[in-house]
Design a protein around this nucleic acid. Sequence first.
DNA 1: CCTTGAAGCCTAGTAATCCGAGGCATAGTA
DNA 2: TACTATGCCTCGGATTACTAGGCTTCAAGG
Lengths: 126, 126
Amino acid sequence: MDRERLKGNLDLLLLSVLSAGPAHGYAIITSLRDRSEGTFDLPEGTIYPALHRLEDSGLLASSWAQAEGRRRRVYGLTDKGVAELAAEHTQWRKFATGMQAVLGWSAQVAWHPAGGRDPGTLGWSA
Amino acid sequence: MDRERLKGNLDLLLLSVLSAGPAHGYAIITSLRDRSEGTFDLPEGTIYPALHRLEDSGLLASSWAQAEGRRRRVYGLTDKGVAELAAEHTQWRKFATGMQAVLGWSAQVAWHPAGGRDPGTLGWSA
DNA sequence: CCTTGAAGCCTAGTAATCCGAGGCATAGTA
DNA sequence: TACTATGCCTCGGATTACTAGGCTTCAAGG
């Protein structure tokens, strides 16, 4: 999985997971991995800074909790976060639609330089 | 449109447009805008460096052409580019599927902190 | 004649992001 | 005792898209 492809979509993923109810960072990681069936297996160095960023933006609120002798920071969506989730969801749909439009338009059969369609006086020798 | 969301997908878009046949930078921009119905209206500062990068990687081959007194640099897919297009297309599908899985899983109705589901002894006051 | 706009190309620097590597602590288990 | 899983954190690197600027030619309008 190309790391770059996730950029800009991580926030939406986190907000989406938390829309099912509050959770702590480590649980979010496993939850994300399970729901995506292994596609999104994100390291902690990705998740934690993102959660902090979302909290700084006011989209999440956190609180410390104790469970089985371990301290956890539990995050939940704020009202602002709920609104942002809806907005990002819409943006994602638009983006994915645009992608699909461009990809669908492309020939499924590869165009080959040596073929008949002459682009001019060009040599497409790789 | 969030700029970050495009990251990692631009290459796929360019390769996809060029799979329909060779084209020059400026034409690629308009083609991308048309096919996506305005969703992808990308500036030249985005396209040209990307084309150079793809050519350096051996996915594209370019050649200067003259048309109506204007010089154009026309790009076409190399064999390697065709292969990369297929690979990225597959990756995109996997990514989009993963996104859909996570998003679909999320409750469409916003979870609200003040509701009955008690997360513990937490105050979710935004 | 001059200006404006579209067609075309380019590059340097900025900002934002994800992630790898490392560190720290506790609980359970071999 | 050592190792694994749970659970949190931060710093720096690498990659990327974009802003802003610059260059040329052609056609149209004033």
